[in-house]
């Protein structure tokens, strides 16, 4: 499982009702259903991802996140998870409100644009960073709202959303002491667990 998914897996309580936004091939939901008795739905638009979810017995709905979560009632579930999708949304701030309407708590993982390699890339080459976590060129990237670890923390503060837990990860699993000390600089992927209200 991807490094950020492993961390998220540990954060999910048993028997939770979950919504996974951009669930990909359903790996996380399938593992959670099998080992933690979690139930829920994944939202995905990629045809291969959808087919893979069906093969795993994961409930998957073809639904574009930019169309909102209007088909889910307030508090429809316990936890909403969104990995690697925040930066591709038209209005990430509106989505955060929507997620915290549908569940009291959510977990969001996204590429941290302030990662030192990205900073170096921009500083030395004067060009938009292209990396393992941001593999696209500026003109064809789906990532239209890049942000940093600190940006997201500020958004939560401005919205009166409580940050329960935060972490950074790298694509090769192991956390490093430096990323705990300076997450905004040394974290490649930012992961937040936030709760509605203060």
């Amino acid at each position: 499982m991807r490094a950020d998914l492993e961390l998220i897996y540990d954060w999910v309580p048993e028997h939770a009702r979950i919504l996974d936004l951009g669930c990909g091939d359903g790996t996380l939901l399938a593992a959670l259903a099998k080992h933690k008795n979690v139930s829920g739905y994944g939202l995905e638009i990629d045809p291969e991802g959808i087919t893979a979810c069906l093969g795993k017995g994961v409930n998957v709905l073809e639904q574009n996140l930019d169309d909102g979560l209007g088909n889910f009632d307030d508090d429809a579930c316990d936890l909403v998870i969104m990995t690697q999708a925040l930066q591709a949304l038209r209005r990430p701030d509106v989505m955060l409100d929507e997620m915290l309407r549908v569940a009291p708590e959510c977990i969001i993982a996204f590429p941290n644009f302030a990662y030192w390699k990205h900073r170096l890339h921009l500083t030395l080459r004067g060009r938009m960073p292209v990396s393992r976590s941001l593999p696209h060129a500026w003109y064809d990237t789906p990532n239209i709202h890049l942000s940093t670890f600190r940006d997201f923390a500020n958004l939560c503060r401005d919205k009166g959303v409580t940050i329960v837990d935060q972490a950074v990860g790298s694509a090769d699993h192991e956390g490093h002491w430096s990323s705990r000390l300076w997450p905004n600089l040394f974290g490649e992927t930012a992961i937040f667990r936030v709760r509605r209200g203060r």
């Binding site: 139930s39 739905y41 959808i50 979810c53 069906l54 994961v58 409930n59 998957v60 709905l61 073809e62 639904q63 088909n71 889910f72 009632d73 429809a76």
Partner: peptide
């Protein structure tokens, strides 16, 4: 699909 969601049923769409 949305009615099944409201009813808390397993559904893929």
């Amino acid at each position: 699909v949305n009615a099944l969601l409201r009813a808390g049923k397993s559904v893929s769409y």
